[in-house]
């Protein structure tokens, strides 16, 4: 086996999740710099087109399909361990989805290897440098791992998808599953999202703890709609019922990079700004001139949103009518 990097490419309903393709894209660059192979691992109940991963640079695509892989269970851990032991990858990267976040620490502990969490950048030095955020993104730490494989997780939206051909050889994986799993999947309860997803929106309006009432939240909703954007929130709002964690921006929420970000009543804790710092233009409205969000903003509007929003909404409605 040539020296290689391995990426876990999670699938859902037969299709790869974006995060896996984002990681493959970044890993392809890293593999090229060291003349490594790039391997992908698919464990799923169903895969429509495994070879498609070669478009994002995969040289070898290991596929294990089994009905038990429709949801998390210990078969994931055992099968992944077999693959890692066989391929002996230099590094193994997993998307920090719900499933990936359960799988990665288990696999790392079984292999007694290090696991860097939520990497925001990789770089080759003598070894692979993994840059991770800490203290809610206030601090960046450069981490090296002294054991093999160097394991890490990456949050969705961290890297861009770049098409690059890999050899795309397929290899099937022997599926392992425990005779009796001590955790048994009983079903999946869908939850209707509270509004449009924020990950892909061109404009993201974010309401923070300074938004005082649900009625005011309605103004933010209308603003997001008029701008064809999505409405996100910070932790204090996610803790109320107006929004939810699916729409939370930041370290324990989502990473967004819209063309325009508008923060309303957002104080700007490190946990939040870490998730929006790469946005295009950043507009912040806050009564407090010293709010930390202003450090990260291009347009720092020191005002009460209850004065600004009605004026802004009226003008945007007029613009829409004219169009």
């Amino acid at each position: 086996m040539r020296r290689n990097l391995l990426v876990f490419a999670e699938h859902r309903d037969g299709k790869p999740l974006r995060v896996g393709l984002e990681i493959l894209s970044k890993a392809r660059e890293l593999a090229d710099e060291r003349d490594f192979d790039l391997c992908a691992l698919i464990l799923t109940d169903r895969v429509d087109d495994a070879e498609a991963l070669s478009r994002y640079g995969a040289d070898l695509i290991c596929v294990g399909t089994d009905e038990s892989f429709g949801h998390y269970g210990h078969g994931f851990i055992d099968t992944t361990l077999d693959v890692v032991r066989e391929l002996g990858p230099y590094a193994f990267i997993i998307g920090a989805t719900a499933l990936g976040s359960m799988l990665a620490p288990e696999v790392a502990a079984h292999l007694r290897t290090g696991l860097a969490a939520h990497v925001i950048d990789y770089r080759w030095d003598e070894d692979l440098i993994q840059v991770v955020p800490s203290f809610g993104g206030r601090v960046a730490a450069e981490i090296v791992t002294r054991t093999t494989p160097r394991m890490s997780t990456v949050k969705p939206g961290t890297f861009s998808m770049i098409e690059r051909r890999g050899r795309g050889e397929l290899k099937s994986v022997k599926v392992r599953k425990p005779e009796q799993d001590r955790i048994r999947f009983e079903g999946f309860e869908r939850i209707e999202p509270k509004g449009r997803p924020i990950e892909d929106a061109g404009v993201v309006v974010v309401g923070g703890g300074g938004v005082e009432s649900e009625k005011d939240w309605g103004m933010l909703k209308e603003l997001a709609e008029l701008l064809n954007g999505a409405l996100g929130c910070t932790r204090p709002v996610a803790d109320r019922s107006w929004s939810d964690e699916e729409h939370m921006v930041g370290t324990s929420g989502k990473i967004v990079k819209p063309a325009a970000y508008i923060g309303i009543g957002v104080s700007g804790s490190a946990h939040h700004t870490c998730g929006m710092k790469d946005s295009g233009i950043v507009i912040a409205i806050n009564r407090d001139r010293n709010a930390p969000i202003f450090d990260t903003a291009d347009l720092r509007i020191v005002a009460d949103y209850r004065d600004v929003l009605p004026a802004l909404l009226t003008k945007l409605r007029d613009l829409k009518k004219q169009a």
Binding site: L115, G137, R138, E142, T273, D295, T296, L299
Partner: peptide, 19 residues
């Protein structure tokens, strides 16, 4: 197994304008 080589404060400040 992991070792932190270096830590730094992430500079995410922009040149903003107050309005």
């Amino acid at each position: 197994p992991t070792k932190t080589l270096k830590t730094s404060v992430l500079d995410i400040c922009r040149k903003g304008e107050y309005v």
